[in-house]
Nucleic acid binder design. Sequence first.
DNA 1: TAGTTGACCGGAA
DNA 2: ATTCCGGCCAACT
Length: 89
Amino acid sequence: MTTFTDKVKSVVADIPKGSVMTYKQVAIASGKPAAARAVANIMAANYDPGVPCHRVIRSDGGLGGYNRGGVEEKARILKREGVSLETAK
DNA sequence: TAGTTGACCGGAA
DNA sequence: ATTCCGGCCAACT
């Protein structure tokens, strides 16, 4: 039985390179549309080397945070992946 | 076991 | 447009 946490990790790990998902989207894909906050907490409390949490961003277009090197490192990685951090508005 | 916290989200002021 | 408030869920103390 895969727990919600494991499912979240699986979903995040399934995010293709060059793409990003919001915490809400990940929560939905994990089966809990209202667990966006829980997803964020899971990332912050349990970082896994096989889970590219840097591909998960806020719905506002913000990066949220990063437990590995800060928002600056996260932004750097996303730019390296070819993702535009601008809200495109 | 119960209470608090947080890389959030959406609506209201 | 920005700032404030409440709700939701898992992990931590």
